[in-house]
Design a protein around this nucleic acid. Structure first.
Lengths: 339, 339
DNA sequence: TGTGGCACTGCACAGCTGTGCAGTTGCCGC
DNA sequence: GCGGCAACTGCACAGCTGTGCAGTGCCACA
């Protein structure tokens, strides 16, 4: 015995008015007599009526639904982003239609619900989705991803990855590291690649030996595997994980499995400043991209909507000192450049 | 210049058929000639058409939207739940409308979208929401929460909290603890209260001294504060955090701030088995509620839908041994009961 | 009393889809 | 050639809302 949803017609019958009056009673600024409005609201309260946003959207051609795509929701930084974003959206009267890109579902399914924009927190933007959004006039908001291939318009929100990579490199150099590694995952997300590239460029300029590790998914376990291999033979004295999750895997494995004393015999630095990184058990020195700035920029983009001209926002990053990197100038100075 | 969404009429025009034919081409099992179907699908592909699920839902009185309410998405166990649930939903062709209960928004807003059911991952079920769901024939699925007050129907999915609390108690007793504490938050969620209650009952029966801590939100920081206070004077040799997040706060603070050697001079045990708890940096012994069983039961409830008779599922819990509790029988035996 | 203005109300349509029903077309058998 | 049948196809309506437009009743004013 499935009960149907209460409709405006039900309320109208009960309040003894026309259905239009009910609609007007729930539309701010519409013309209804005070008496009618009161009667209608009582009837609605009794019946448990709520305006059908599906029908309203259908009529108004303007949706309050925002599609949010995020894979790997367990990743501490992604989940922090989702927490802030979803709260911000509903504070503005928007709803968050979540799609887990790791679930194997079809991203384009979001468009079936006429979302006003699609926010991509992780994963690459498939060409198909980009095309569909363009066709249907839905705006895409890409966070930390490269611009879509064609001349398609999208709002871009980027942390300054290159600057972050350089910051990490300079910090390790200041710590006296002479043989470093950068750990990224096999995923070629442009933000992560940019971080690693800038790091390596800086290291090269300073004449420091470096190696790159790029295998497996972006996860804690990948960081663990990397540490096992990289630290098997001696030599490496500094590691940059392009993600806090990777860096934490490295850090913990180095300490508990590989017997390294961090930061005395090994410096580790991350990127993101996820909440867990601040826990006393880790104390990870890392590059912070401000979550609140990121969220604010995203919300702005969503609120401006599909009819506005798309913008690109580049957010600054900062170094957060904790205790996984040797103090500046504490170790032996760099070997002078050969030649 | 906002572009409108492509409608079935657009496709019909382009393919030279009626709008009904388009609808049928996208309805499995409907009657269309192969030639027409092909032409329609090509036109749809060209235009980037996708069926409007809002209108379809309006017509069919049957929604594919599932409301998911979760506060504190940063909590590692909650985010793991959300990850599994969202993936499972879309594998079944359902969509996940996320509402962050910490965002201050109106939970009832979910009903505006005619969700078929509302899943509550955290927070209490407000009476208002319960009433509205009942009125509108939407099913509620409560995870680890007490049954709603009135005779309202809801699917209940519960881990066996009491059994878990007893398990934790017996493990600490076996470790030789004589003076223990249970750390919960100020939130009186029934699941958490049940865990603590069962723990205390078991301790009382065994004649072990215990204290209860119940302040602040359910967070890592609350665990830290509790540890600072509880461990300030000597005596306590075992702590049960009713949530892994709390237990991890306790564990880390005990080790790094209070100079305790866990598990030698202090045993810590948690509840949930969140992913971070397994990290080498923590090695938290904990009570596991199987995430996959929980998710499976939730998905079943959602899929059965509002017209089925509601069920209550109680899931078993197990002890996961890691290294935050002394080995069994390792310490001094329990002081014999006085009298 | 007649008239204009005002506040309110209801009708009817648009927005997009799914589907029952009736109509059309083509084909086959006699 | 003609009836019958099957396969399609299109019309029209339902599902729920918001809103332009016309209509109603009332009051004030000349």
């Amino acid at each position: 015995m499935t009960r149907r949803f209460v409709s405006a017609a039900d309320v109208a019958r009960r309040a003894g008015v026309s259905r239009s009056a009910v609609s007007r009673a729930f539309t701010p600024g519409a013309q209804v007599s005070e008496a009618a409005r009161k009667r209608i609201q009582e009837a609605a309260e009794d019946l448990g009526y709520r305006v059908n946003r599906l029908a309203r959207t259908l009529h108004q051609q303007r949706s309050d639904l925002v599609g949010v795509v995020g894979g790997n929701l367990v990743n501490p930084y992604i989940s922090a982003q989702l927490e802030a974003l979803s709260a911000g959206l509903q504070r503005r009267g928007l709803q968050c239609l979540l799609l887990n890109s790791g679930g194997g579902g079809d991203l384009a399914a979001l468009l079936d619900y006429r979302v006003r924009s699609v926010v991509l927190l992780s994963g690459a933007a498939p060409d198909e989705l980009v095309r569909l959004c363009a066709r249907n006039g839905a705006r895409m908001v890409l966070i930390g991803r490269p611009a879509p291939p064609e001349g398609t318009s999208a709002d871009l929100i980027l942390a300054d990855s290159a600057a972050g990579g350089r910051l990490a490199a300079r910090r390790l150099i200041a710590a006296g590291c002479r043989n470093v590694a950068v750990v990224q995952s096999a995923s070629r997300t442009s933000a992560k690649v940019d971080r690693a590239d800038a790091f390596c460029t800086e290291m090269q300029a300073a004449g420091v030996t470096f190696t790159r590790w790029a295998e497996g998914p972006n996860s804690y376990d990948t960081g663990c595997s990397a540490a096992r291999v990289l630290l098997a033979q001696p030599g490496i004295d500094g590691i940059f994980g392009v993600t806090d999750e990777l860096a934490l895997g490295v850090l913990n494995t180095a300490r508990s499995e590989m017997g390294r004393d961090v930061p005395r015999s090994l410096s580790v630095i991350g990127f993101d400043d996820a909440p867990v990184s601040a826990w006393a058990s880790h104390g990870l020195t890392t590059i912070r991209q401000s979550l609140s700035q990121l969220t604010e920029a995203t919300l702005d983009a969503v609120e401006r909507g599909p009819s506005s001209v798309p913008r690109t926002v580049r957010l600054p990053v900062t170094l957060v000192e904790r205790c996984s990197v040797s103090p500046r100038g504490a170790a032996a100075p760099l070997r002078p450049e050969a030649g």
